[in-house]
Design a protein around this nucleic acid. Structure first.
Lengths: 91, 91
DNA sequence: CCTTTATTTAGATGTTTACCTAATTATCTA
DNA sequence: TAGATAATTAGGTAAACATCTAAATAAAGG
């Protein structure tokens, strides 16, 4: 996991909203795009950014591509962050 | 705390390195700049980005400005992330 | 006060990013 | 296999970002 890549993927409001949607349930690309006032290609680009960072997974199901959260990467980031909260001089 | 602003601040390798340095101990702006192959104004800009996101705090001490981590914001992000790991359909 | 040291602000420039429209690829079904 | 539907890739543009040099601000010390 590239730390920078993950944070870059999380640094856009549209992508954070996509994560919120996927938190409820897995969704197709079109389903996700319908929730936004933005073209499908733009959403596709955002999904690709999230996937490149390892934050989401995709699986084709016939004509549809279903996106889901990859929670393990979130857990890795949590570990890194908790380690910061617990600073050297406080450990 | 603006989620997007925090992640944007974390999405740069130089800024992540600055956080690593501050994890060891509080440091002056010049001390931080000395650790990088980059001009002081550039580092100053990065510190400003981190501070705007609430990730670091600064305090003037005579000629020096001392930077430190604001761990509470990291903890807030951890909470948000842990909530994602624990998805609706799994709770 | 004048000089030195520490740091930031301003202004300029090349690169990256987010978005759009148009075109392409992949799959399903009649 | 032709037409419809789902999604991505390609190409272009405007805004944002990282970096630099030069100039400005702030404090310390002779």
């Amino acid at each position: 996991m590239s730390q920078t890549l993950v944070f870059k993927a999380l640094s856009d409001p549209t992508r954070l909203s996509i994560i919120d949607l996927l938190k409820e349930r897995d969704r197709t690309a079109g389903d996700i795009a319908d929730q936004f006032n933005m073209t499908k290609p733009s959403i596709s680009h955002h999904l690709n950014t999230l996937q490149s960072a390892g934050l989401v997974l995709s699986e084709r199901n016939g004509q549809h591509i279903i996106y889901s959260l990859n929670t393990t990467v979130f857990q890795d980031v949590v570990k890194w962050m908790m380690d910061i909260s617990r600073k050297e001089n406080e450990s």
